[in-house]
Design a protein around this nucleic acid. Structure first.
Lengths: 362, 362
DNA sequence: GCAGTGAGCGTTAACGTTCACGAAGATAAG
DNA sequence: CTTATCTTCGTGAACGTTAACGCTCACTGC
């Protein structure tokens, strides 16, 4: 960005060599800590580089070392409203990647917890340079994780984390805070003693468990008049979610509010509708899809916590690329803030639903 | 990303030339619509390029045409809590820019509406390749805009828009929706007939006017029991904001809630505190700074609408760079969704306040 | 004395593009 | 027919970096 030398051009490796009366080969070796330079010259080079404000020309570098990188993106087909934009984010980031020949293979499997182990195994066997995926049930994947990590293939978790799996990093919404937000929003609305239910995907999924933790803790802290019913697990299945919701709503202890912590909220809403409880039971949903729009507009759904799948995908891919470009540089763990979608800011997100443009991840 | 030819490498300009039995010079001319190629060969080249799945190697290109770009970023010093991170976002984007020698000059002036015309004039005189700024009072800047646009210098508005100014694009929070959100959040809390006040920066600023429009419209639509008091303009001055708030709170028609639509909320909060009204008057603030944190934690401020200055700066800079790299490609107008910061998701943003790391703009 | 070793360094050929220069042929003007 | 001009195209030198290769010289062991 700054410090051009006298003639106006930025200092290059050649300028350093000239200034020192040495050769560019030596400078290159010194700058990269390669062998074949004496400590003395190495120090001289480093100092001169500093002095001239040397910044490596990335364009020249990536032109020279023409890297080919193959990345596997392993994600379920369901829930499409979440994973499709996530894949889009990944694709966008891949397209924008500059200075390498990037190949992204998308490997699909039916849904979280069903077929993921096999799919990831399959990907690992193909010797990719990196793997992107959502760990649905970290326990069942533990053995696979060890094998992949052992092979030295970097894996990065997206949409849910798997601590201790050897993944180089993870990109997720802050799950605990998502749950906490849901509780806070409900506490604003429910002023009198009420029952609150939660429907989640699968408690074996780390982020689902975290959401629940946040929800329960915040409920206890901010709203002691709200009692939490036993959690319902839909196991990422639409039918199961529907059945369980019906059962929940017909029970003696019918909840006054429901927090759906998975993007799989459609069956739950259908059950509510069929029992004519939409609007009478407060609902906080997760993520956004077309069917949810009119419900928020009409106030039948109080809010939804948008997990920004496209942004997650993009950030994850960028992080993986950055890691592959330079394995020394550490990769940050990204914890996104979920967007609280209410009635009045809904239009902003709806326009994004349709515009599946290559752009924007804000 | 795909279509490597037989030997595994991606198709380059030389491959096209070989396949056609022509020279790379001709291919280059044809691909870029330069003169000196017959229509026939041009068509042949284009077809072969398509067929081989040719993708230009950006690294090689930017290595060859070693462009130097100078950009001016003209922003006020106040309100630092907003403009400092915005500048940081700009700097980050500049550092990440690859394939060009980028120089960013930060030009400061006291505050919006005071010194901005002169500062922008000064920048324009220096023949920058692009200008980034916040149009505080578009009216007063109109003449300057015309001159700059006439010189062909692209300008991009950040944090507030200036429609019809000739700017190539703008990056802002969706102001109307910010206002609407504030109204909706207040309507959740205030159930009985109440008075609501708004304190803004300067109604001459486009985005401030928009926020008010959104606020008023949503109040009318969702909460007819809330009456809106006449708007107060602080003119981006701390002292004026303080004085006006005191006056407002001592008036006969003391408001039950205040929407502070400018980041300049500190003086307002001070006034509230001194009159012991913090916690008794509902407050929705804008943006985040250290002093606001305990107030949100304790529930004395209901919410704040975070305008994500760093993300805005980064996106704006990226957009300008993209435009300068290819002036044909149109630049999107970016409308960010403000983050609603409540008690439970506050920690997520606080950590960003301290970590002034180079990373993250989510 | 000499071959062998290896540390330290210089040379040079790529990587894929862009662009200035000039050659060759066609057309026009004298 | 010659000379000038224009169109179409090929040639080759950069851009800054990396890495393979090879040179020099000091040191070792015999």
């Amino acid at each position: 960005m700054r410090s051009a030398n006298k003639n106006g051009k930025a200092a290059g490796i050649r300028d350093i060599a000239n200034a020192l009366g040495t050769s560019i080969g030596t400078v290159d070796r010194a700058l990269h800590g390669r062998s074949g330079v004496s400590d003395r010259t190495k120090a001289r080079v480093l100092r001169m580089a500093e002095q001239l404000g040397y910044k490596p020309n990335i364009a020249a570098r990536s032109l020279k070392l023409n890297r080919k990188i193959r990345i596997a993106a392993v994600f379920p087909r369901e829930i499409a409203a979440f994973f499709d934009p996530l894949r889009r984010g990944i694709r966008n980031a891949a397209d924008e990647a500059v200075g390498m020949q990037l190949t992204v293979d998308f490997i699909d499997y039916p849904r979280l917890g069903s077929g993921d182990v096999a799919a990831i195994e399959r990907a690992a066997a193909k010797k990719y340079d990196g793997i992107l995926f959502t760990p649905g049930r970290p326990r069942e994947l533990a053995a696979t994780f060890r094998r992949i990590a052992g092979q030295g293939i970097p894996m990065l978790c997206v949409a849910s984390d798997a601590p201790g799996s050897g993944r180089i990093s993870s990109v997720t919404v802050d799950a605990y805070i998502s749950g906490a937000l849901a509780a806070e929003l409900l506490s604003h609305r429910l002023q009198t003693p009420s029952r609150v239910a939660t429907i989640t995907g699968d408690l074996a999924t780390f982020d689902h468990a975290e959401k629940l933790r946040g929800f329960a803790a915040t409920l206890a802290m901010l709203a002691s008049h709200l009692t939490l019913l036993p959690v319902v697990e839909s196991h990422e299945s639409a039918e199961e979610a529907y059945r369980q919701t019906i059962a929940l709503l017909k029970a003696r202890t019918r909840p006054d509010a429901i927090y759906i912590s998975t993007a799989n909220s459609l069956p739950v809403l259908r059950a509510l509708e069929e029992l004519k409880l939409l609007g009478r039971v407060q609902v906080i949903a997760t993520d956004l899809f077309p069917e949810l729009v009119p419900l928020i507009e009409s106030g039948k759904v109080l809010a939804t916590l948008y997990q920004r799948p496209e942004a997650q995908g993009k950030t994850a891919m960028e992080a993986l690329i950055a890691y592959l470009a330079d394995k020394n540089k550490p990769v940050r763990v990204h914890r996104f803030a979920p967007h609280i979608i209410l009635r009045s800011n809904l239009p902003l997100f709806v326009s994004r639903l349709s515009n599946e443009a290559k752009t924007s991840t804000s």
